[in-house]
């Protein structure tokens, strides 16, 4: 008989497959680990650090840490929750986030996590960065004020669309989203309406031009229930681009 492959996450037993990270195994078991830069379809990045968990007193990123039999992983204690809250507040402070007027309010993972963790204010002084916008593409608008540098668009482009459109450049606080085109504008790039890369943004940085208010605010994926209930459901899975056609009778 082979040894059973499982570890415990907050006392709950989680089975895993060889090669799984803690986050992958938890997600397969239906357990939500807070995250922003992780997506089940793409390689892990480990930049947002929201998925921090504690193993034998050491804080690690669950999206990278390899699952091993017998591990005892702590995800939800007050210290880790407080650290996640502060990380979110840092993300809010370093960008320019205007939730009440944002097209993706209610389906934004950053906003949803902030509500879920009880965030009521920024805590840190806002950085007020000057960041560019790009309205050159017929299907998408880019507002880098909201970018959290998760590189999901870059990874989706490489791993699924197999064409480069987005990537990160710069360094430190000057890190920025770059577009693959001679002009640096999205309109001159190979971006197309049904690119996975354009629909995987966890925030409102890469915005389809149409259809934002098809689902009214208040009825969106994270409006009805907190993100830790909705679990791993995402905007890009909730409304697949194919169903976005204007003549779709389900939206009549």
């Amino acid at each position: 008989m082979t040894e059973k492959r499982s570890f415990t996450l907050d006392q709950q037993e989680i089975p895993f497959q060889p090669g799984d990270s803690i986050l992958q195994a938890a997600q397969r078991a239906g357990v939500y680990v807070p995250h922003l830069c992780f997506h089940p379809d793409f390689s892990a990045n480990g930049s947002c650090r929201l998925c921090v968990v504690s193993i034998a007193g050491k804080t690690v990123a669950a999206c990278h840490y390899p699952a091993r039999s017998g591990l005892q992983v702590t995800m939800n204690n007050s210290r880790l929750q407080q650290q996640r809250l502060r990380l979110l507040q840092l993300l809010f402070a370093e960008g320019n986030h205007f939730c009440p007027s944002c097209e993706v309010s209610g389906s934004c993972q950053l906003q949803a996590l902030a509500y879920d963790l009880g965030m009521t204010h920024y805590h840190y002084d806002p950085f007020y960065p000057q960041r560019p916008r790009d309205g050159s593409h017929p299907d998408f608008f880019i507002d880098t004020d909201r970018c959290i540098f998760c590189d999901l668009c870059g990874r989706a482009g490489t791993e699924q669309d197999h064409k480069p459109v987005y990537r990160l450049g710069g360094r430190g606080e000057q890190t920025r989203l770059l577009i693959y085109s001679a002009s640096g504008k999205l309109g001159d790039s190979r971006a197309a309406a049904d690119d996975k890369a354009a629909h995987v943004c966890p925030v409102g940085c890469i915005l389809p031009r149409e259809g934002h208010y098809r689902d009214p605010i208040g009825e969106r994926v994270y409006d009805a229930s907190p993100i830790h209930w909705v679990g791993n459901r995402r905007r890009d899975q909730h409304a697949a681009p194919a169903a976005d056609s204007a003549g779709d009778p389900s939206h009549d």
């Binding site: 650090r49 990380l87 840092l90 002084d125 540098f149 430190g172």
Partner: peptide, 17 residues
């Protein structure tokens, strides 16, 4: 702050804060 590579949230934004 100046030498942070900017990859992860706590260092990229934390050094500025």
């Amino acid at each position: 702050r100046y030498e942070s590579c900017g990859f992860c949230t706590p260092c990229r934004a934390g050094t500025v804060a």
